[in-house]
């Protein structure tokens, strides 16, 4: 810093500690709630410190779910979420790598048209085409399938543009060296382009895994059968039980479990995450 002013430094740390605390508070409360039993939530103030029902509550939601709400065990929902998040992340990265490769390294008629069609996906989030997309998926018989959960979300202009940007920074001479070394297009793609893009791929993977995991509206539409519920959408079924007090301890245990995987991913790969987030918007 430019000057030393002790009171400013103290103020700075205070702000950050307060901020971090405020950010963490709701999750702390939820965690505390998830370790009590139903009778602790009857009235007054909810418990603010953890209770002794942690293992019991988490075991219950993991293995059995909350039958009264028609929610399956969260173990199954976590599995479904994992499948969906991985499919979306891998699928988006795969098809975007391929299309960016085609756009950057080939000359062919209608290239601009292809480019603009991909660009259009940026302007059509699922929220603005809810019903017709649902009809397409239903028509293809993909309701209540993993394919229906993931494939409609894997077209990606941002990922394509990101890889296009990455490829454009790879020197032409490297491609020429590879050509002289006898590498055809797909060999070049596999041996040179992919390895050289791997940190970008990893960073994007972190972002897309979280994106896929946190999908809400789409799974809500295409899963009518509890066996394909994802964790993030499944919680709504527990919240929306009519005419009864919410089962706070089980809802919060589910919420904690549903947010745990992506939060762990972010914490473990903080640097990649920040890189991915910023690159994606370039």
């Amino acid at each position: 810093m430019v000057e030393r002013r002790p009171y400013l430094t103290v103020l700075t740390h205070l702000t950050l500690i307060l901020g971090a605390g405020l950010i963490a508070l709701p999750v702390w409360i939820a965690f505390a709630a998830s370790t009590h039993e139903a009778s602790d939530f009857l009235s007054g103030l909810m418990p603010l410190l953890p209770g002794d029902k942690l293992v019991e509550n988490y075991w219950k939601v993991l293995a059995h779910g909350e039958s009264s709400a028609g929610a399956p065990p969260i173990g199954l929902m976590l599995f479904n979420s994992t499948v969906m998040a991985l499919s979306i992340a891998v699928g988006k990265i795969a098809i975007s790598l391929l299309s960016a490769f085609a756009i950057v390294y080939f000359r062919f008629p209608l290239k601009m048209a292809a480019f603009w069609i991909i660009f259009l996906t940026l302007m059509l989030p699922v929220e603005v085409r809810i019903l017709p997309t649902y009809e397409v998926v239903a028509g293809l018989g993909l309701l209540n399938t993993y394919a229906g959960l993931s494939i409609p979300l894997i077209a990606s202009a941002t990922a394509t543009f990101l890889f296009r940007q990455v490829f454009l920074t790879i020197p032409d001479e490297l491609t020429e060296a590879a050509r002289i070394d006898g590498a055809g297009p797909m060999k070049f793609f596999r041996d040179i382009l992919i390895p050289l893009s791997r940190t970008n791929i990893a960073a994007l993977f972190v972002i897309l895994f979280i994106y896929g995991w946190n999908q809400y509206l789409w799974p809500l539409l295409v899963t009518t059968d509890a066996s394909h519920y994802t964790a993030v959408m499944g919680i709504q079924r527990m919240v929306a039980v009519p005419d009864s007090e919410p089962l706070w301890h089980l809802i919060m245990a589910t919420a904690i479990l549903a947010m745990l995987p992506p939060v762990v991913v972010i914490l473990l790969m903080q640097r990649l995450f920040v890189q991915g987030l910023i690159e994606q918007e370039k």
Binding site: P171, E173, E176, R179, I192
Partner: peptide, 20 residues
């Protein structure tokens, strides 16, 4: 002929070594 079929080798100004 493709470059690879000409039996030539090339050294570039930037060296163009595969970084990975």
């Amino acid at each position: 002929r493709e470059p690879a079929e000409r039996d030539i080798a090339m050294v570039f100004q930037s060296y163009a070594l595969y970084p990975h």
